[in-house]
Design a protein around this nucleic acid. Sequence first.
DNA 1: ACAGTTTCCCGTAAATGC
DNA 2: TGCATTTACGGGAAACTG
Lengths: 433, 433
Amino acid sequence: SLAESQLQIRQQIKKLEELQQKVSYKGDPIIQHRPALEEKIVDLFRNLMKRESGDVAAIRGSRKFNILGTNTKVMNMEESNNGSPASLIVTEELHLITFETEVYHQGLKIDLETHSLPVVVISNICQMPNAWASILWYNMLTNHPKNVNFFTKPPVGTWDQVAEVLSWQFSSTTKRGLTIEQLTTLAEKLLGPCVNYSGCQITWAKFCKVLPTTYVHTLQSAILPLYCFNENMAGKGFSFWVWLDNIIDLVKKYILALWNEGYIMGFISKERERALLSPKPPGTFLLRFSESSKEGGITFTWVEKDISGKTQIQSVEPYTKQQLNSMSFADIIMGYKIMDATNILVSPLVYLYPEIPKEEAFGKYCRPEAAPEPEIGGDPTGIIQPYLKTKFICVTPCPSVFMDLPDSCELLGNGFPGTNSGNTSDLFPMSPR
Amino acid sequence: SLAESQLQIRQQIKKLEELQQKVSYKGDPIIQHRPALEEKIVDLFRNLMKRESGDVAAIRGSRKFNILGTNTKVMNMEESNNGSPASLIVTEELHLITFETEVYHQGLKIDLETHSLPVVVISNICQMPNAWASILWYNMLTNHPKNVNFFTKPPVGTWDQVAEVLSWQFSSTTKRGLTIEQLTTLAEKLLGPCVNYSGCQITWAKFCKVLPTTYVHTLQSAILPLYCFNENMAGKGFSFWVWLDNIIDLVKKYILALWNEGYIMGFISKERERALLSPKPPGTFLLRFSESSKEGGITFTWVEKDISGKTQIQSVEPYTKQQLNSMSFADIIMGYKIMDATNILVSPLVYLYPEIPKEEAFGKYCRPEAAPEPEIGGDPTGIIQPYLKTKFICVTPCPSVFMDLPDSCELLGNGFPGTNSGNTSDLFPMSPR
DNA sequence: ACAGTTTCCCGTAAATGC
DNA sequence: TGCATTTACGGGAAACTG
């Protein structure tokens, strides 16, 4: 209540300031006394705040944590009101940090106490994904300010709730959330094929637990066709959330610009991918995330015609953060080549689905060619050439499937982005230039 | 002295054990009592050790350190006997850790004290190279057990001493020290051109300080020809030692096997490099470290003939740890290609100097081609191809100098190491195969 | 033996101090 | 302002622990 009245006083001082700016006169007491008043009330407020910050940290649970940064702290080890300690994993163990302080003001003693929302305490960043999932699930499903036993019996969420949260994970850190199509792919991954996912229930285990193959067998076996086992998260050794979180991380750290542009379809089933690409001209490609890599991977899939004229859908093995460290995805896309059986390098990528020339989409995100610049301290006598610039390119040597070139192929150019931009289909297939 | 007599007793017990194994008899008292004796003396010894380890850590200097891991510690802040505090940089500030203990044994009190050799205290691993340099210089030039003021006036070393230490930095962590040729290159870097470096003096500053260009101008200007400025360490923004230490690090972490094989000439002047390569057949190359990169870089230099038949010496821009993270140097060497003006890729590297076919030298260190292995959960319907394998290769697009192909060039092969091994000079130049 | 968890510590980047 | 030094912390890997 002290804080409340302070805030009221501050608002009144603010009003006074406004008044003074509208009307004033010589000897106006507002001009005289307002600054002093303001100073005093702010002092008071600062005093309050100072004493509030972390005098006592009360932690409940079965683990002991060293909380640094406070002068004194109290570990409150009282057992939870739940009779069974349930032995939650560390990232499901919720804790409250309570702040207590005594304020003395004009002889009046006021006890203040507040507490944080439940927090998860982790000892290494590698626990962050699961900890974050706990926070998400908690906030999604309860308004309770201190339900530390939430995960002893975690409630189920509906797909609608989960979808909103997932999309928000993207939109809050990038310029783009998830589309209906992307969300539907994710829903199928969690729930299996279904006409309408709205209202479907998703358990905490489905969202954030590693599902052993046997678990699925027990609960769902024989009901779902085989491809369902492969498409959902069971038996993969990592949870849906960990998989998705690594993709979010990949997006933020390596392909943010492309994601923001909307160039990354990302979440799309292989069936739908085939349906989209098949009718398009050879060389049309799209970008999607790896479904099998825990670490977050991205690949491109393109359409081409084999010798017999049959439409083929091809993907490269997904690129991981490790590889993207040394070469941007835009550079990989622009430079990717297949070496065919006659040792000619061609790029199978021409149009980003539906029909954006790849130079237009990715050219501006490619590393510019470094201007030749001899090493400092290089040979001043001129008898030795300056260093030759190098670059990495990504190639697929001798694909197992023998392929015809797409109609509009691109022969290995001079490596400078932009010079090959525009229509490349005026080249004779396989003709060097 | 207690410790000494304990050690003697232990030795005698050991002797008893040997005796017992040679000769023994029923009721032998050695068998009866040796284990108990041994137990007792070891207990005693353990007791002594426990009390010795770090009861008191006495630190002298102008900085305060938090030394963790001891129950009690004393900061001994007494001023050094040197009147001027000299304000050394942190990696030149030497400290002694003294250990004091009291041992009570059979009513006898024994005071024990010992101290460490001077140590350097650092707060981040990035201070390690300079700290290590201090330790090296100290051990190289003094036997004094506690001269914490060593760096207020660091003595000079001779080249012979420095050379031994430098070679030892390699031989102690790899299977190969430095050759006379390599050491001579390093001597020239430190001291400038000279017929015989033996006995030359090297200051601490020359070894481990960043030498501004102006410094050289003041002391040496106009006396030395221009290329000397470029070849030594002055004006580069980093010290000789930091440069070398990063190379040692590069060797240990990225090219250890190649170094151990002796494939890396490493330290060689560009003049000598030219002299070695010029008479060799086109395609002969050697490996050397970058002289200008603080971070440690390695490059290859090869000989070729231009259109007019004139011999050319070419190098690529040095590869750094960053790039070697994504691709091993052996893979880079084996895969490196130049894209000439007719868009044909050729490898200018054929023989490692003097005449080792590159496949023979580097083939076994190349990453094996991964066997095609479809993604788990890949399409089981068979309508979509398995992922295509990719690999990075390093290329130089359109070199500014138009070159003829070396006589023995290698057209871009199928990417599988080994299949192109052996003599490649039986190919027609520029013929695809 | 094993999985969950913590500790250790390198190395980059930011903050701090002088 | 600029440089020296420390702190913060992500992330890989080893150590610990029940």
